[in-house]
Design a protein around this nucleic acid. Structure first.
Length: 197
DNA sequence: AGTATGATTGCCT
DNA sequence: GGCAATCATACTG
């Protein structure tokens, strides 16, 4: 499947989005880390059913779901199949590509390697907030996606970060060896993800 | 490199 | 009231 194609389950979309790029008004980067949240996933915001906050997750695939995390940060997700069941992909980290100086201004002059490392940080750098919730990503709107021309990256797989429920499922995908990842080093290592020892 | 803490909003999963 | 798909800061090593 094409990378920018949401007619698939979140685990496939999470893997497929690695290497694609996100652009928002003069800034953007390449996706290096994602997490899948599927239907019947107790770690997902959609698990308890539809609310005002998570309504976009229950809409058509290929839309943005933007939520506030810990009352402070915004986080960006893409809605996936099956439609109406609340599956999605959390975008966790980008490699800076375009508008680095502007993104540094948006976040208070972070180093390039820290600019887009983590879902809250990348949303701040790209100035993503509630206004983009529900945006149709298949049209070129305020935020759009681009295929990457580069060859396929080496993709690692690990457990998800910052959750307590279903914490053993390996639904996080990342570019192995990237300097732009979030999470502890032992999750991002060269081998398959495991603790050193 | 790893660990602890407080900030703050929305839903109780 | 408690908790959450987080982050900056302030420590320790």
């Amino acid at each position: 499947m094409r990378a920018v194609d949401f007619s698939a389950a979140s685990i496939e979309v999470a893997r497929g989005l690695i290497g694609a790029s996100i652009f928002v008004a003069g800034v953007g980067g390449r996706i290096v880390e994602t997490e899948a949240y599927d239907e019947a996933d107790s770690a997902s915001h959609s698990f308890a059913g539809r609310t005002a906050r998570n309504a976009a997750m229950f809409g058509p695939p290929g839309r943005a779901y933007v939520y506030r995390s810990y009352g402070l940060h915004w986080c960006l997700n893409f809605v996936c199949m099956p439609a109406g069941h609340g599956a999605g992909v959390l975008i966790r980290a980008l490699e800076p590509l375009e508008g680095i100086a502007l993104m540094q201004r948006n976040r208070g002059a972070a180093r390039a390697s820290d600019l887009l490392r983590g879902p809250g940080r990348l949303a701040a750098a790209l100035r993503i907030d509630r206004q983009l919730d529900g945006l149709d990503l298949c049209r070129r709107g305020a935020l759009w996606l681009a295929e990457d021309g580069q060859d396929a990256p080496d993709i690692g797989q690990s457990v998800r970060i910052g959750i307590t429920r279903e914490s053993e499922r390996k639904l996080r995908f990342f570019v192995r060896g990237s300097r732009y990842l979030s999470g502890p080093a032992w999750l991002n290592g060269a081998g398959r993800a495991r603790r050193p020892g």
